[in-house]
């Protein structure tokens, strides 16, 4: 299975996302922000980083990159898409996911090993986890506070679209401790924590993040 990883100018975790795809058993395909099509990939990861320097607003310029047009269309058609950190911000800016990510409430960048609970396994990227499973993966962001209006938050909760939630201290002021959400169809997932940094015991705090990548690969094989 071929999973595309988009590189925007300023993407940082693109090579790591590619590595995670390979560790999970998939083939990583490098996609360039200027590409006009998705080269026939079976799923896409929008990696972390500071696309276009995060000028204006995180993800606000990446949204207009040429590759995003076919990506948005494909996502609406059911293509599995995972946005991690800056990728999550870009998905929100693209209106594939509701809400927005704002500056951390403590105004500092935070990097730590974060305990999370998997709240939904009904997505393309979390089907391999147990409902309620607790995992630890790195978190690193300066603008990771998830915000949305009350109605949207209630809707996300009611429809089971909160995918992962922060445990212990809320690291960035996200409403309702939300660390990741999905769209109604469950194919598009946005995450603030970085599962691609928890796929090898040598370099990660755990290998708990691998499940995101194996989930989508297994789903694609079944499909």
């Amino acid at each position: 299975m071929r999973i595309g990883v988009v590189t925007f100018p300023g993407s940082l975790d693109d090579r790591d996302a590619g590595r995670a795809v390979r560790v999970a058993g998939g083939e990583a395909v490098a996609l360039w922000h200027g590409d006009a099509d998705l080269h026939g990939v079976d799923a896409v990861v929008l990696p972390g980083g500071f696309s276009y320097g995060d000028y204006l607003r995180c993800g606000a310029i990446a949204r207009f990159a040429p590759v995003m047009q076919p990506l948005v269309d494909a996502a609406r058609g059911g293509l599995p898409v995972l946005g991690i950190c800056n990728g999550f911000q870009t998905l929100c800016e693209s209106h594939l996911l509701p809400g927005a990510l704002i500056r951390n409430d403590h105004r500092k960048f935070v990097c730590r090993d974060q305990r999370l609970r998997v709240e939904s396994t009904a997505t393309a990227w979390t089907s391999g986890y147990e409902q309620g499973q607790e995992i630890v993966v790195p978190l690193k962001n300066g603008e990771g506070g998830f915000v949305a209006d009350q109605r949207t938050l209630d809707e996300l909760e009611a429809e089971g679209r909160v995918v992962v939630r922060y445990l212990d201290d809320n690291p960035n002021g996200s409403y309702r401790d939300i660390a990741g959400i999905t769209n109604a169809r469950g194919n598009v997932v946005g995450l603030m924590p970085h599962p691609e940094h928890a796929v090898e015991s040598l370099t990660g705090p755990t290998t708990d993040g691998l499940g995101f990548f194996t989930s989508v690969l297994e789903g694609l094989i079944r499909a």
Binding site: D13, R15, D16, K108, V110, H194, L202, G204
Partner: peptide, 25 residues
């Protein structure tokens, strides 16, 4: 201090602060 620095990016950090030395693959 160190929690404000990304120690994970590039995916090759084997040891980082507060270890005696940083180790990279």
């Amino acid at each position: 201090v160190t929690d404000q620095y990304d120690r994970y990016v590039l995916g090759n950090t084997v040891l980082a602060q507060p270890e005696d030395a940083g180790v990279l693959r």
